[in-house]
Computed example of a mutant assay.
Amino acid sequence: MNHLGDAHLRTWTLRFMALLAADAQDQLAWLGERELETVSVVEEVELLCRISEELAERGAFEPKDLRDLQAIGRRLGEIDAACRVGLWANALATEPAWADIRPLARQFLVTTLGDWRQPLPRPVRPHRGNY
């Protein structure tokens, strides 16, 4: 791994996978009062899954790590457009894809880090007003 950006993208991928791997109640607790749109989560994870192959070519991930990320990307691609609308907290309870993605994210973390139980990313505070 020779790019500072690669290290950042690797870290971001691992943190997002930790969030996807967490139990549903932990995901909901992490969300708290945040109104995170499902489509934003899907797009972010799809992007991370797409760039993972290039990151592996540059040494940020091992080629064996890609199998689970690709499976996550495929499962996300199966989520119907209507199910991408609304809050992620609601989708976690109603869209079966999230329950399917959880074990894939866990397997990715086990393969990559040796354990799926990782700290959840620090939540980003929403922007409020002008700078």
Rank of each mutant, 00 (worst) to 15 (best):
W98G: 05
G32P: 04
L113W: 00
A89H: 11
G32C: 03
E33H: 13
Q25V: 05
Q27S: 05
L31E: 02
V45W: 05
T112M: 03
G59E: 08
T13W: 00
G77D: 12
A89M: 04
A105Q: 09
D65G: 14
N130T: 12
D100I: 04
V85C: 06
L76V: 06
I72G: 06
R75S: 13
E53W: 13
R75L: 13
G73A: 09
H127L: 15
D100Q: 15
W30H: 08
A18E: 00
E37R: 14
E46H: 06
D23L: 14
T38C: 14
Q25N: 07
A91S: 15
A71K: 15
V110I: 13
D100F: 08
A29E: 12
P96Y: 00
E57D: 15
L120E: 05
V41Y: 04
M17E: 01
R102K: 14
G129S: 10
P63T: 05
H127K: 12
A81L: 12
G77L: 10
R10L: 01
A89S: 15
G32Y: 02
L92N: 02
R15A: 11
D115F: 07
W98H: 02
L66I: 12
V124G: 08
C49M: 11
I72P: 05
F108K: 01
R15M: 07
T11I: 00
G59H: 09
G114N: 05
G86N: 04
L4Y: 02
